[in-house]
Amino acid sequence: MCNHHRCISRRRFLAAAAASGLLAACGQSSTDGGALVPVEIDRGTACALDGMLLADYPGPKAQIHYQGRAEPDFFCDTVEMFSIYLNPEQVRAVRGLFVQDMGKANWDAPVGHWIDARGAWYVVGSKRLGSMGPTIGAFAQETDAKKFAEEFGGKVMRFADVTPDMVVLDGGALHDQRM
Results as ranks from 00 to 15, higher is better:
H175Y: 13
L129F: 00
L23Y: 02
A48C: 03
A149C: 10
R11Q: 14
V91L: 09
F82I: 00
V156M: 06
A55H: 04
A70M: 10
F13G: 05
V79Q: 04
L174Q: 14
C2P: 11
S9W: 03
I41C: 12
G119E: 12
D116R: 14
T163K: 15
G112V: 13
S29Q: 10
A35N: 10
V37Q: 12
A70K: 08
N106A: 11
N87A: 10
V37P: 02
G130P: 07
P60N: 04
V94T: 14
R128F: 01
G21V: 05
R92F: 08
L54T: 02
H5C: 15
F82S: 04
A16Y: 05
A17Y: 08
M81H: 00
A173E: 03
A55W: 00
V124G: 01
W107I: 07
A35C: 01
A140F: 05
E89N: 02
Y122C: 13
A19D: 08
D50E: 11
K146E: 12
A70E: 15
P110M: 09
R11T: 15
V124Y: 12
T163E: 12
G133F: 04
P58H: 03
R158D: 09
E40W: 02
Y122I: 07
I136Y: 01
R43F: 12
R69N: 09
S126F: 04
T143G: 08
G153H: 07
D161L: 12
P72S: 10
Y66W: 09
S29A: 13
N87V: 00
A140G: 12
A24F: 06
V162F: 10
M166R: 00
M52H: 02
C26E: 11
R178K: 15
R92I: 05
A16V: 06
G172E: 06
I136F: 01
Y122G: 13
G27Y: 02
A160N: 13
A149E: 02
K127T: 15
E151N: 13
G51N: 08
Q67A: 14
C47Y: 00
D176A: 15
T163Y: 00
D176M: 10
N3D: 08
G130M: 04
L36C: 02
M52D: 06
M179D: 09
V94M: 02
G68V: 05
G130N: 12
G133I: 07
D42E: 05
A16C: 08
A173K: 04
D170F: 03
R158G: 02
L36Y: 05
R95F: 01
P110T: 08
P164L: 08
S29T: 06
F82V: 03
L97I: 10
L14G: 06
F75V: 05
G51Y: 01
E71V: 14
E151I: 04
K155D: 07
T163Q: 15
A109K: 15
A138M: 11
L14I: 09
M179F: 11
R69S: 13
S126L: 03
I41M: 04
C47M: 03
K104N: 04
V79P: 00
Q28R: 12
A145F: 00
